[in-house]
Computed example of a mutant assay.
Amino acid sequence: MALLLRFNQLRNNIWSSCPARLLMPHAGLSSGKLPDPKSYERRLFSTRVQETASLDRTCISGIQPLEFQQTSEHEQSVPLLIFDIKTTGFLQKRNRITEFAVHDLWAGKNNTFETLLNPEMDVPNYIAAVSNINNDLVCRPDVPSDVLPLLLAFVRSRQTPGKPVIWVAHNVKRFDGPFLAQEFDRCSAQIPEDWLFVDTYCLARKLPKLLPSEDKRHLHDLGSLCKRYGISVEGPPHRAMQEVMKLCQVFQKMSFDLKLTYEGLMDEAIEASYFSKFLK
């Protein structure tokens, strides 16, 4: 109960103190005129995110609600959020998120959220080539720069009072989690303590070998896992929602191979405080 009260207090403080803020018009600016990312100040949330974000009211095609082999009477009341982000680079302290996508694997209505984000800095060409996200797509005044208001609203609409939220991503411990923590820190807040995180990269290391001669070191990335399970997803490669669709299917296959139960998933989860070390 104390944990729930602390989370509600944090959420209320956020929503009661998030003044609207005009987005900086970056469209058409050259890289030389873009602001220095190191000059950004900590600030409260912007509320101008409603029009450009997408809350899907249907299930992702081909993705079925997850059912663990052994069920718990509490598992269906806990959101299981598969998510992925795209960024301007790999070093968390020097870069920003450009796209956020999430799908609740327990399904139900309004189970998908995705949005592009204005990083307020240049997207390097080598990143744009990989992620298919460039300056023309995100460095525009009509693209929001803050993801947290809608993200918190999405979670609040799915969370059962007194229950945690489980976030699942591939390499969340070293990449997605630290970037998410940075977004909270940039807004002078912390990740809610009842958010737990599961890294499917760590789960992949526990999968049995397909062949005795197989070198497991090269089979932990998401692409290799998709090949292992014969998973193919249409759409722009390496975009956040396409990665989420892949991971949703991979995670369900992995859960079966590992005989993963709800209780076992909770044992794999790490607390939000784990990411505080990346903010130092």
Rank of each mutant, 00 (worst) to 15 (best):
residue 54 S to M: 09
residue 176 D to P: 07
residue 226 C to Y: 01
residue 18 C to P: 02
residue 278 F to G: 04
residue 139 C to R: 12
residue 79 P to C: 02
residue 186 R to E: 14
residue 162 G to S: 07
residue 127 I to N: 04
residue 173 K to H: 07
residue 102 V to N: 09
residue 191 I to K: 03
residue 19 P to E: 01
residue 68 F to M: 00
residue 4 L to S: 07
residue 85 I to W: 06
residue 158 R to I: 04
residue 205 R to Q: 09
residue 260 L to N: 01
residue 142 D to V: 12
residue 159 Q to K: 12
residue 2 A to P: 03
residue 176 D to V: 01
residue 47 T to V: 14
residue 66 L to C: 06
residue 28 G to M: 05
residue 225 L to K: 01
residue 35 P to R: 05
residue 259 K to F: 02
residue 4 L to Q: 15
residue 200 T to H: 05
residue 43 R to V: 07
residue 56 D to L: 10
residue 165 V to L: 10
residue 113 F to N: 04
residue 190 Q to G: 06
residue 14 I to D: 11
residue 101 A to T: 08
residue 126 Y to Q: 10
residue 26 H to I: 00
residue 249 Q to Y: 08
residue 41 E to R: 13
residue 66 L to V: 07
residue 61 S to K: 09
residue 53 A to Q: 07
residue 55 L to I: 15
residue 256 F to Q: 12
residue 61 S to V: 07
residue 275 F to R: 03
residue 185 D to L: 15
residue 11 R to I: 14
residue 35 P to G: 12
residue 8 N to C: 09
residue 275 F to V: 06
residue 203 L to H: 00
residue 103 H to D: 03
residue 72 S to C: 11
residue 2 A to L: 11
residue 38 K to C: 04
residue 215 D to F: 10
residue 130 V to W: 13
residue 229 Y to R: 06
residue 250 V to K: 00
residue 260 L to A: 05
residue 57 R to P: 01
residue 77 S to T: 03
residue 125 N to S: 12
residue 46 S to D: 15
residue 107 A to I: 03
residue 41 E to W: 13
residue 131 S to H: 04
residue 125 N to A: 14
residue 209 K to H: 00
residue 3 L to E: 01
